[in-house]
Design a protein around this nucleic acid. Structure first.
Lengths: 211, 211
DNA sequence: AGGCAGATAGTACGATCGTTCGTGCTATCT
DNA sequence: AGATAGCACGAACGATCGTACTATCTGCCT
């Protein structure tokens, strides 16, 4: 989990510092608002109003709405990296790290890093039936996340902390399902118990396959 | 799982048979389209075009877009009942019935009863941050579904097929999480393996707590 | 210090949104 | 058979959508 499409300045357009700051503010607000209004439902006019800018001034930073959406996804991705992946990887390698990343995920949901819960859960559900570059970017992120989980499970197995007989992808799938289930229940019903249930389930799964 | 707001004719308005047929066609299309465009993203104009009717003619069946959404939710609910709950309950009481309802859920996803996967997963994700009557109706359905799962788990325990020490709500939560995880992965990535993973996980959970 | 490119705002466009209204048509009831 | 009321339509509304064009201002490089 990481290349994540660096902020490649492919075009030869230089950026001014004030513009860069504006752009960052726009994308931060866009990433947060998108979990509430949806990536499509989020309108440029409302976004401009939310950050106190003119519609055209904001729009000039992006060539189209689709490019704004793509940039917002990348921004959300780097927030997700900072809030979930990096803290998780800070734990010592093995089951502790797997536990850590799951806990970091639940924590970022609980702390409402995004007001509408996990950005990618929200975006994936909205875009799942709308093929195109925007969907593809979200799907790529989601695949990357799953690969990260699988890698951590695999590391646990290599270290002898998780049974070799365990199906790596299967275990990763189940952990992810518990995380998404908790996210959904927490955001829709405000049900904090769901987070605890996910923790219980995750602990149970890891115990079940402990070597 | 069942009262589900019967088609109560609270107003004294009589219905003509042709109107009733149109209304049914509208709501069927609306329930299906909503899993693709979203309940909000679904526009009346596009819905009218999809079923070959005028915008105003369609609109006349409902006093507002919100009422159309509420009616579409009820329609989706009765489809869900027919395709998932009823077939599941056809199995003999106990673990078999629990297995049956889960399998019926996965089957209705795989058969694309709704083109965008489980209607309520889709709607819940879209509406989770938008309080109001529409959200409330979806949330009520979702609670009802969870209660059904919990009831089936409880029945399994009463029959001595599931260990009494099992946490009823916890087991229901985990089963539901596996179902939703499979739904999300299947719709976003077209990943049929996810359905199999859910089946494996469900079987494993039920075995784990078998009495 | 001068000048250029980037940043922001203003305005306007065509399309589409949900909604309202008035008008014929016809199924159904008396 | 005639009356009633539900059904469907076309046209039009004000608002808002994404997008384009133009003009003013200002940070930054030479």
């Amino acid at each position: 989990m990481k290349p994540v499409a660096a902020p490649v300045r492919s075009d030869r357009r230089r950026r001014r510092s004030d513009g860069e700051r504006s752009r960052r503010a726009i994308l931060l607000a866009a990433a947060e608002l998108a979990t509430v209004e949806g990536l499509d439902g989020l309108s440029i006019g409302r976004l401009a109003q939310a950050i106190g800018m003119s519609k055209s001034g904001l729009y000039a930073h992006f060539g189209s709405k689709a490019e704004l959406q793509l940039a917002a996804i990348d921004t959300a991705g780097s927030i997700f990296m900072d809030e979930v992946v990096r803290p998780g990887l800070a734990e010592p390698e093995g089951v502790a790290r797997l536990h850590g990343i799951c806990e970091a995920f639940l924590g970022h949901v609980e702390r409402r890093v995004f007001p509408g819960g996990c950005f990618f859960a929200s975006a994936a559900s909205e875009l799942d039936t709308r093929p195109g570059p925007v969907q593809e970017r979200v799907a790529a992120f989601q695949r990357d996340w799953m690969r990260t989980l699988e890698r951590l499970v695999g590391e646990g197995q290599e270290r002898g902390e998780i049974a070799d007989e365990a199906d790596t992808a299967q275990l990763a799938f189940e952990l992810n399902a518990l995380l998404l289930g908790a996210n959904a229940s927490f955001v829709l019903h405000g049900d904090a118990d769901a987070l605890e249930r996910a923790r219980l389930g995750i602990g149970d799964r890891l115990e079940r396959w402990a070597a």
